[in-house]
Design a protein around this nucleic acid. Sequence first.
DNA 1: CAGTGTGAAACCGTTCACAGCC
DNA 2: GGCTGTGAACGGTTTCACACTG
Lengths: 217, 217
Amino acid sequence: MRYHRIPDETVRRLPIYLRGLMFSADQGNEHISSRSLAEFVGVHAWLIRKDFSYFGDFGTPGVGYNIQRLARQIKKILRLDSVPRAALVGVGDLGSALLAYPGFATYGLDIVAAFDTSPKKIGKVVNGVKIEPVVDLAALKQRDITLAIVAVPRAAAQPTVDRLVEVGVKGILNFAPCKVQAPKRVKVITLDIAMELARLPYYIPTGQTDKGKGAQQ
Amino acid sequence: MRYHRIPDETVRRLPIYLRGLMFSADQGNEHISSRSLAEFVGVHAWLIRKDFSYFGDFGTPGVGYNIQRLARQIKKILRLDSVPRAALVGVGDLGSALLAYPGFATYGLDIVAAFDTSPKKIGKVVNGVKIEPVVDLAALKQRDITLAIVAVPRAAAQPTVDRLVEVGVKGILNFAPCKVQAPKRVKVITLDIAMELARLPYYIPTGQTDKGKGAQQ
DNA sequence: CAGTGTGAAACCGTTCACAGCC
DNA sequence: GGCTGTGAACGGTTTCACACTG
């Protein structure tokens, strides 16, 4: 059925599919079947077909999906077609690593500004981006920057988010290990790296009082 | 009902609760109600109660939960009580940041070894951890290290994982943006940072053809 | 024949309402 | 009165089976 609401879980998987489609395109393929995409991204074929079915007919029975057409559509849904511009706040160890991280380009994302409070860092250029004082965040509004990455210490996270909301940021990726409040119109995704590692031991059989059994990846 | 299987989604939330409980303990509290914990961690009170109900009675009606007792139990379930030791493979920008990251200690996690292929890095000491050649991974078996963090370039990810499985690692946190294969007995969690950022624009109202509406954090 | 698209069933997780307890 | 613990209702996602198509 066409014109369906796209479930949140499907949205979460779209970037994975995109990754796979682009890789397959790089290999010179023009079409890909749900089966081969499934193998590549690690999601069952029927789930892929169901996911794609939420936004129209893209496949040709007996052939598969047109990679370019499908990739373009996914980008459009995720709104990655307009090259979203992001600002980074907090250029510590993690922040610096994010500035240098090549992976964002895969999705057409671009970190175009960086901010920090430390006078030692301000003015330095990391990976082509000049570090500005946090006080200058106000200018974001004029600079067409709607996404922000927060990589500041936990105590600074909430004030930083408040400030970002003030200057018109619409989406925030928060690396500080705490809940941050924001108005509903601003989407916040919190990514606590340590928490992911903390989940891992649960799935490891102890050999002794083996109770919690893990699934695959 | 006691002695219930703990749903995966609950396991995913346990570290969040733990974070909140420890913070509350630091504030000098001895008990906490589901309501106040809910406020602090951003999860509804009824869901917290349901989650806790999967593993026994910990709360006292009218009083709340004993923080220490509950925290200890959660740590036990997550198997964080034995101070899991982790190795890092790939000491690039991201890897270095992870070595310096203080957040792991919150969960009693410890990165006790680091590996890289680059002769320039080998032998250096970052944050108290000496960088060893990847060839020496074999020794992990003897060193009681069962967790590994993979922060190598995408092309190196699968070979690295294969090697880690060989030397007896049981859980892997993979930062490379690709699926990696491992035997079912080895749990792999892949964390694609760029993917999280890529999901963000979807939830941002465009003002024009506003269709995809986001939820809160 | 290989492969898509999709109703229907099964499954899982969340939400609610409220009985029971301190 | 305040708070926990939980069966039951609900809603969303995954899985299945299969009709349909190039």
